[in-house]
């Protein structure tokens, strides 16, 4: 079977991709993507000025999470650290949590994701299009079954436990 180099994501590459390993570059790029989200938020979220403090809070939470991930003695994905920082800062006993939550209401939940998917669409590489043609319909069917099985499996367990 023709496997070719197209399939390989080696560990070095994954290492290089981890945003917490290049904090300087990440800080700059994060600012750019935050601006994109900030503008996308106009339509269904809030006007630019009103959403500004919320976007800055999000930016700060991300950088804080990445910073912690950088120095933490054990590995967790950066998303987990960012998530933990943001949970902690919005807990009822955290100082100023009321103000933080209030500012974040001006940032629309879905509007923050819309640019991510635009980036994702634009960043699909020739490798992925080729692979998609090679692996073909069988893997598409299997993938959809995998997603359905996982989702419904989790939902059934959670439903029974609630």
């Amino acid at each position: 079977m023709k496997t070719s180099d197209t399939v390989t994501i080696d560990n070095e590459q994954l290492q290089e991709l981890r945003p917490e390993n290049q904090l300087g570059k990440t800080a700059l790029l994060l600012a750019v993507v935050c601006v994109a989200a900030w503008i996308a938020n106009i339509v269904n979220g809030a006007p630019l000025l009103q959403a500004l403090p919320g976007m800055i809070v999000l930016y700060a939470m991300v950088m804080l999470g990445l910073g912690i991930g950088r120095v933490a003695p054990f590995y967790l994905p950066s998303v987990a650290w960012v998530s933990l920082v943001s949970i902690l800062m919005t807990l009822p006993f955290f100082p100023g949590n009321g103000w933080i939550v209030e500012q974040l209401t001006h940032v629309n939940f879905l509007a923050v994701v819309t640019p991510v998917l635009a980036y994702a669409g634009l960043a699909l590489t020739g490798r992925e299009f080729t692979m998609f043609r090679q692996t073909g319909w069988k893997l598409v069917i299997v993938s959809l079954l995998v997603f359905t099985g996982t989702f419904v499996g989790s939902a059934v367990v959670a439903h029974l436990m609630l």
């Binding site: 790029l29 994060l30 950066s78 919005t90 949590n97 640019p115 960043a123």
Partner: peptide
């Protein structure tokens, strides 16, 4: 590619802020 990973992070932060309260 790396932009996707970075762009999802503000969303993750927004997400976490729904858990705290």
């Amino acid at each position: 590619g790396p932009l996707i990973l970075i762009a999802i992070l503000p969303f993750i932060a927004k997400f976490g802020s729904t858990i705290g309260p």
